[in-house]
Design a protein around this nucleic acid. Structure first.
Length: 470
RNA sequence: GCUCCCAUCGUCUAGCGGUUAGGACGCGGCCCUCUCAAGGCUGAAACACCGGUUCGAGUCCGGUUGGGAGCGCCA
């Protein structure tokens, strides 16, 4: 493959809100295909709507992509900076007769649509200025420039995921290219920018499928080459309805806050709408190797947090202990009031991490389950732990502690002692271990308790345990 | 209303004319076990409906129903 035949993919969000989970998947697909083919992945911010675009949204999108690990090639293109070029193309179309000036006012158009709606007719611009002589134009009145679109025949989109999609040209109206204030519309800007940026493949949400036909008409009018389209079905909430606030997590930042790993998100989002046989666990390098456009599914998918959790648990187990400790420290710092991880706390955390990470579905859970490592002295007991520490249990605990003098403070040695003690007393191991767990952690669930005794050390462990001896 | 898209277990999906319709998550059971997980084994669970085409349809075609998207001087 030579340099100029390599694919150029783009992600083109409009900065009017956070990076949405659906947008993240679109970005991922584009990114994966670019990396798979050795092509380019470029980022373009579609900020031609000056009213709704905000710098905060731009920042959130960039932050989201960076967190997801989706790096783009070259500089970010800000669409609004290219307005002069867009205008130039509109003028060219006008000069060639492929576009015309329309003087219809917004009120007039609104009335037109209302009438069409009332009559049960399709709602579209009726072409009232399409063939009017320019001399009829009201002097000095504002006008927009519309594409003179073909009225017969059909426009076909050869979509790589949806197949051939045909639109009768008669049902597509003459779209506005340049607004009356001279700024370009989205339809004009995308087509011109994609062409100028050398974009070869457009992978985007299928909410743009209808737009594709209109954009194709524009491309034809300009005599520019076709691009390859792939319209990916949208992601729905767990209830099948369109994703909205009430579904909870929507912005990628929220997933981060809930303790999901970027690796998890990449794998999960990939599987939502793309498949490779029966493979489920697909780390990113493997995804880059396997990804193709043909295996993108055609039907919309729903979010399933249970499955997300399961994948996240998998990737947490795969993550390096030190990196996880850093994440826990980060989460601690975000608490109210913020907590810092002490040197001793970090040391304990690293030692306990192999056992802790096997039990956590999210980083938040990991931080919560680590909490008992960071305090000193007697633990406050939760209700279940208090119940475990009955008088009998506390007596047993005392007797057991009595056998521990001189014991090597290792998980293995302590477990041996506990087993011997239990056998001597005709108790089950659990009858010894559970009171120890309750007293040591204040809870009834924890990583293997003898290993935790070792992590906390003799001194700290005895401090916690002796408090509860009867 | 008009246009376009979609339709396999609850969910994500494999399937690309002939399969006991497979896997994963979740759910139930068993094993393991100091708790909780993890892991192993195992069970229940799907081709929306109606017509065609074909010797033979989950797979091809049409319709119905049900979802979704679009119909802005938003993107």
């Amino acid at each position: 493959m030579t340099e100029n035949t390599k694919p150029v993919l783009r992600f083109a969000p409009s900065p009017t809100g956070m990076l949405h989970i659906g947008g993240a998947r679109t970005a991922l697909f584009n990114w994966l295909y670019a990396r798979h083919t050795g092509g380019k992945f470029v980022l373009r911010i579609e900020d031609t709507d000056r009213e709704r675009s905000t710098p905060q949204a731009v920042a959130a999108i960039i932050e989201g992509l960076e967190w997801l690990g989706l790096d783009w090639d070259g500089d970010i293109t800000y669409q609004f900076t290219r307005a002069a070029r867009h205008r130039e193309i509109a003028e060219k179309l006008l000069a060639e007769g492929n576009a015309y000036r329309c003087y219809a006012t917004q009120e007039e158009l609104t009335a037109m649509r209302e009438a069409q709606r009332a009559a049960g007719k399709p709602i579209r611009y009726d072409g009232r200025w399409r063939d009017r002589d320019p001399s009829e134009a009201p002097a000095g009145a504002p006008f927009v420039i519309r594409l003179r679109a073909p009225q017969d025949g059909e426009t076909i989109i050869h979509d790589i995921v949806q197949g051939d999609v045909r639109f009768a040209n008669e049902q597509l109206d003459d779209m506005i290219l340049l607004r009356s204030d001279g700024t370009p519309t989205y339809m004009l800007a995308v087509v011109v920018d994609d062409y100028d940026m050398g974009v070869t493949h457009i992978i985007r949400g299928d909410d743009h499928l209808n737009n594709a036909a209109r954009q194709m008409q524009l491309i034809r009018a300009l005599g520019w080459p076709d691009m390859t389209y792939g319209h990916v079905p949208l992601i729905h909430g767990p209830d099948g309805a369109k994703l909205s606030k009430r579904h909870g997590a929507q912005a990628v930042g929220e997933y981060r806050d809930m303790g999901y790993l970027p690796e998890t998100m990449r794998n999960y989002l990939l599987r939502l709408g793309w498949s490779h046989g029966n493979d489920e666990i697909i780390p990113t390098p493997q995804a880059i190797e396997w990804f193709n456009l043909e295996s993108i599914g055609k039907s919309p998918a729903r979010l399933d947090f249970k499955k997300l959790d399961n994948l996240n648990a998998h990737y947490i187990r795969e993550t390096d202990d030190g990196a996880l400790a850093d994440e826990v420290a980060h989460l601690l710092g975000r608490k109210d009031p913020p907590q810092t991880l002490s040197a001793i706390g970090r040391e304990r955390l690293i030692k306990a991490m192999p056992a802790l990470k096997e039990r956590a579905k999210t980083l938040v859970e990991l931080a919560t389950s680590s909490e008992f490592l960071f305090t000193d002295g007697a633990r406050e007991l939760d209700a279940a732990a208090a119940k475990i520490l009955s008088d009998d249990a506390r007596r047993t605990l005392g007797e057991f502690l009595g056998t521990l003098e001189g014991t090597d403070w290792t998980g293995h040695a302590l477990e041996e002692k506990a087993r011997a003690f239990a056998e001597a007393k005709s108790l089950k191991l659990g009858q010894v271990a559970q009171p120890v767990r309750a007293a040591l952690t204040g809870k009834t669930t924890s990583p293997p308790i003898f290993a935790m005794l070792e992590v906390l050390g003799r001194e700290e462990s005895l401090k916690r345990l002796t408090t509860h001896v009867l």
